[in-house]
Amino acid sequence: MTDQAYNFAYLDEQTKRMIRRAILKGVAVPGYQVPFASREMPMPYGWGTGGVQVTSACLMPEDCLKVIDQGADDTTNAVSIRKFFQRTAGVQVTEATAEASVIQTRHRIPETPLREGQILVYQVPIPEPLRFLEPRETETRKMHELEEYGLMHVKLYEDIARHGQIATSYAYPVKVEGRYVMDPSPIPKFDNPKLSDNAALQLFGAGREQRIYALPPYTQVVSLDFDDHPFEAGKAPHDCDLCGAGESYLDEVIVDDAGGRMFVCSDTDFCASRQAVGHRGRLSPEEV
């Protein structure tokens, strides 16, 4: 049952219209950070209030929502947000990527390829990719405006100088349609290739920083690099121990006090679906 104390999906219609305008602007200028008047949400900022507001503005009664955190549908954060929209919007929810029309995520892009008509909403803590080296907001805005992105490579240079390679493995900066440099939120760089040419609409919401940005379907997204240190998506040299997948992003899990470890897909829906149709990994239980 929908909680009648709230408007559909919690935010009032006027606020949703304001957010939708910001989203439309973001879609029109891919990768550009659009300021918006972020509202107080009944949850702390660390919980993805930016993503929640974007999702709220996108949801329709007929939508089917999936919420993931680090690839999992069952973490506290994911469960709370899913419940929040079940309660305030009464929409259907799912854990299956393919069934969802709107997916809110923190830290991952689902393994199952997205399709046209789907919306992927990212929770973003720090939208400004230049922030690390240039704390002045007026200056970073100017840099975006004038396409002065040399500084982004200074960051990568520092990485190589210090670690012998580009050590940035999360929130790896990208250039959108040859124009705006964008922070893809703290997804692993493993997911970066999925940003590009994606059939789904990708929306990014930063609550505390009051920014929304977007990648419309089939946008070209290129990870920054050096000619002699090309971008590599990187992948652990293992297969999933539960479903045997060789191409998915894996979490390392400690399984006993003796330091035993296993590697499992971080995308729980992907892993479970594969197991359900008989795929098996190194540590799968014996077949009965």
Partner: peptide, 27 residues
């Protein structure tokens, strides 16, 4: 200067600002 950036990065910044994209050359 950029105090949070190494000496090499400080010198390299202008090169990168005008399009240098070869790490070894910049270094």
């Amino acid at each position: 200067l950029r105090m949070g950036v190494s000496a090499g990065g400080n010198v390299g910044e202008r090169l990168m600002a005008v399009g240098a994209r070869h790490y070894a050359d910049i270094r």
